[in-house]
Amino acid sequence: MYDTSEFKKGLRVEIEQVPYTMLEVEFVKPGKGQAFTRVKLKNMLTGLTLDRTYKSGEKLNPADIVDVEMQFLYATDDIYHFMNNQNYEQFEIPKNKLDEAWRFLIDNMPVTITLYNGLPVGVNLPNFSILTIVECSPAVKGDTVTNASKLATLQTGATLQVPLFVEQGDKIKVDTRTGAYVERAKS
């Protein structure tokens, strides 16, 4: 159990069978008065936030949450296969549990997978991923400045807006946090 005095940003707790992570923690105590701790909590399953206030000395259960370092191996249909770097065990996650992450996953990519009671609730990718364009309309020569863009299909099957000068077969750098094209990667 975590006492209010242990509350801090990033602490993961379980309230009514839901895992939350603490986003903000504020200690409030009028001089001679009762102390309180107010926390902003993020539901780790839905991403929704809520505020809760606790009297000093109240306790919360830790959430059975672990971050596991893994490596992406391959995808078959809608099942994504990973390998646990610690024990080399394989681990499967269906595509619909990967949110946006599947769009940028490439073979051998190191990832952090968050497990709640043993089940995946989050996948954290490196900030950038280098991906090959497998399909897009031909490049427009000389157009390197305008904001015009076109749709390209990546090796993962995901589509992305890219600048007009980018060609099929090019490797591009994508920011996995925003999902945006960054630049052409040197191949």
Partner: peptide
């Protein structure tokens, strides 16, 4: 729950978050 032992603990809550 704050009110169960009189007014003071509850007043501290209001004071700390709304007034101070």
């Amino acid at each position: 729950n704050l009110l169960k032992n009189g007014l003071d603990v509850f007043l501290d809550y209001v004071f700390g978050f709304a007034l101070q």
